[in-house]
Computed example of a mutant assay.
Amino acid sequence: MNEQDFSSDPEFEPLPNRAIVYRALLRKQWIDEDTGLVQSEAYYLRKNKNEQGLSVNIASVCSPEQCAAKFRTCYGVARLEVGGIRELGLDVIPDSISHAEIAGLPYAEDDTERADLLADLLAQQSQIIWQP
């Protein structure tokens, strides 16, 4: 077995449920122009990019502005609580001091119904806390 199990990697401590993570909103269509709310499209894994998890930054070591500055174009930064993500049966696995991935999401191509449901629920939990 060569698969790396990040959850047992002692290098990075698991995040507590009360921890906050930030999702950079890198596409304009990820924010509803009328309501200002995060769209579910922000929470789909891209199979064509072989994504294994959704990228998030850890709020305790990265401000919303720092999160946005990592990208050439960022339309907003959304805040999520780790405990709320875990309540959906997903996890947030740190892979560096300031970055983690939301793990456990299916590709829409493999399980459309579950991918749609989880993307919707994550979007509902999101709160935009920074916009340019």
Rank of each mutant, 00 (worst) to 15 (best):
W30G: 00
D5P: 00
K28R: 15
G84D: 13
M1P: 10
T73C: 07
I85T: 03
G76V: 04
L15F: 02
D5E: 13
D111C: 07
D34N: 15
V61L: 12
P64V: 02
Q66L: 09
V38Y: 08
T112D: 10
A100R: 02
I129V: 15
R27V: 00
K47A: 14
S63C: 00
I102E: 03
A19Q: 13
I31H: 02
Q29E: 15
G83C: 06
E101G: 10
A78C: 08
I31F: 03
E81V: 12
G89H: 02
T35I: 03
E87M: 10
Y22G: 07
E65I: 06
Y22M: 09
V82A: 01
H99W: 00
I20S: 01
A42D: 04
D91F: 02
S96F: 09
A100V: 08
K47N: 10
S98G: 12
A24C: 14
N57H: 14
G53F: 05
L45V: 06
T73Y: 13
I58P: 01
V38R: 07
H99E: 13
G84C: 09
L88K: 03
L80H: 15
R23T: 02
W130H: 14
G76D: 10
T112G: 13
E109Q: 15
L25Y: 05
N50C: 07
A19T: 06
Y43W: 15
D91V: 01
E109A: 15
D5Y: 11
E65H: 04
S40P: 09
E65M: 01
A42M: 06
E109G: 11
A59V: 01
